[in-house]
């Protein structure tokens, strides 16, 4: 086993274990942190594949921006984990059955060997002056320009959708609403409590 393989197997097992922990730990902040660990290890695996640019972007964008926002949201929302787990035991049998069946099917298909090492030979190492970033930019802005532009449209649409759904005037502004004030009844505001007089000691 070469050193490279050793590194790969180490990173791959860390990535798989961390990904598993993301969905099993109880604490949402820890889950987010494990997700960061997963991203990091995957980024290093990409480095092994000589995809430096993608590895750096994964760390910068996902770990640096997306996950930080994610952590903010997780900390700001008061997530009740018990409530989230409600019905877990109830749905576990059917969920587990489906998962096991799908897993078995995948194992059967993949054991026929479409992904054997002979089928997927390792790519030759790139030349010393080969620039992964340059190639990526070239492909993205020339060959894949149409899907690239469409992906940009998709991002714009996501922004419009998010704003359209969350912005609904300034509800936080404190304004008097005379119509609501007039309609208020005594029962809504006033509660009369009847109790016996107590002795002061």
């Amino acid at each position: 086993m070469t050193f490279e393989q050793l590194v790969f197997y180490f990173l791959a097992s860390v990535a798989v274990i961390a990904a598993g922990l993301v969905i099993t730990v109880r604490n949402p902040v820890r889950a987010a942190l494990f997700l960061i660990l997963t991203f990091f290890t995957v980024a290093v695996i990409w480095l092994l594949l000589e995809a430096e640019f993608l590895a750096i972007v994964l760390v910068l964008v996902y770990v640096g921006a997306v996950m930080v926002l994610f952590l903010f949201v997780v900390m700001m929302l008061d997530i009740d984990t018990d409530q989230l787990r409600e019905g877990f035991a109830e749905y576990l049998p059917i969920g587990a059955t489906v998962a096991v069946i799908i897993l078995l099917q995948l194992v059967i298909v993949f054991s026929f060997g479409p992904f054997d090492l002979e089928q997927m030979p390792a790519p030759a190492a790139a030349a010393v002056d080969y620039s992964n970033t340059h190639q990526l930019g070239l492909l993205l802005y020339t060959y894949y320009v149409y899907p690239f532009e469409l992906a940009a449209v998709l991002l714009l649409l996501a922004m419009v959708a998010a704003i359209a759904l969350s912005l609904r005037g300034r509800l936080s502004a404190k304004r008097q609403r005379p119509d609501a004030q007039v309609r208020v009844r005594k029962e809504d505001r006033l509660r009369i409590v009847k109790m016996n007089a107590e002795k002061q000691d």
């Binding site: 469409l150 419009v160 359209a164 759904l165």
Partner: peptide, 25 residues
């Protein structure tokens, strides 16, 4: 005529439809 464009087109449609359905909040 490419999986990428088919998929992005589908997502453009779906994302708009999800939002339209939720529009009446």
């Amino acid at each position: 005529s490419h999986f990428l464009t088919i998929y992005i087109g589908l997502e453009l449609l779906s994302l708009s439809l999800y939002t339209l359905v939720a529009m009446n909040r």
